[in-house]
């Protein structure tokens, strides 16, 4: 219950944070909202010598409109993202996913960028980010670079963020007018999803013109269900058509087996949940 000793810095600018990261290197750990890091530190599964807190960097907070994208600051708390009208209008599947992410207290404290950088494949934000084709803005000593969502998630708890870099913001291409749904399957409410599906679709006269589907906890990273997307394109938004397309949700997945279900069960769930998510998205 008590973390090991560490030193602590709370820089007020990204530049200062990067300098601290450069100075302390491997001994440092960045804390954003801390809602996943602090339990790990409390149970002493990790013992960094230096913790660098991004919580005092005001520039990393907030949601803004940037033409064909909206930009979410990495340190924007989930609760703020969930209540943001820009997100609701242009990236509704994120709003849906945030609604039931963890619990209210954690949504107050946990951050959008922190959760994505933590890269828990059972985290609720990876699938929507993939589905929407988010771009991750990463700042390092050499400047700023953008990484596409498809390249961001590398493995279990592993992303494209370099060891001397910080995720500063996430750019979400606008999906204005797209239907959206995040369907989460849990046994009890405070669990991470056993499987979840982020679906956002553009429906044109009863036909699914485009669909973007992300899968949560179906592999070592969040996954994009491209097979389903392809199968849905141009199909009517009917139960039968969507059911046929959703059968492809298992393609390329490698789900875990744990107390809540084995891999076979998760694959089955993915097809059912995908169907439901797409139908809900198309209907809404």
């Amino acid at each position: 219950m008590i973390p090991a000793q560490f030193d602590y810095l709370a820089p007020t600018s990204v530049e200062d944070a990067l300098a601290a990261l450069a100075e302390h290197g491997d001994d440092a750990k960045i804390i954003a909202g801390g809602q996943s890091l602090l339990p790990v530190l409390r149970m002493r599964l990790n013992a960094p010598e230096m913790v660098i807190d991004l919580g005092r960097i005001e520039s990393l907070r907030g949601v803004r409109d940037d033409g064909d994208a909206i930009v979410i600051g990495a340190m924007t708390p989930h609760a703020v993202v969930g209540a943001d009208p820009l997100v609701a209008e242009h990236a509704a599947v994120i709003s849906r996913a945030v609604e039931h992410l963890a619990d209210a207290q954690i949504r107050h404290r946990g951050t959008f960028g922190g959760a994505l950088a933590h890269a828990d494949p059972a985290g609720d934000l990876g699938a929507p980010a993939l589905a929407l084709g988010a771009e991750f803005v990463i700042q390092g000593p050499g400047g700023t670079r953008r990484v596409a969502a498809d390249d961001f998630f590398v493995d279990l708890f592993e992303t494209a963020i370099g060891e001397d870099e910080i995720l500063t913001e996430v750019r979400i291409p606008k999906h204005t007018g797209w239907g959206a749904h995040y369907e989460k399957f849990v046994r009890v409410a405070h669990q991470w999803p056993i499987v979840a599906v982020a679906a956002t679709v553009r429906v044109d006269g009863g036909t699914i013109a485009e669909a973007r589907i992300g899968l949560t906890n179906m592999g070592s990273t969040p996954l994009r269900a491209r097979g389903v997307e392809e199968a849905l394109a141009g199909q009517p938004a009917t139960e039968d058509a969507v059911r046929a397309a959703a059968a492809r949700a298992t393609e390329g997945t490698n789900p875990p087996s744990d107390l809540n279900g084995d891999a076979d069960y998760r694959r089955h769930l993915a097809t059912v949940i995908t169907r439901r998510a797409v139908l809900a998205a198309a209907g809404g």
């Binding site: 602590y8 709370a10 804390i31 801390g34 602090l38 209210a104 207290q105 954690i106 107050h108 405070h190």
Partner: peptide, 27 residues
């Protein structure tokens, strides 16, 4: 608890609820 599941430690920090086991005093 030690995993931030139970919420027994909930307080308000600047007007909103947080789990005080999941916040450092320095924060």
């Amino acid at each position: 608890c030690d995993t931030s599941n139970c919420g027994a430690c909930t307080v308000h920090l600047n007007g909103t609820s947080v789990k005080s086991c999941n916040v450092l005093a320095v924060q």
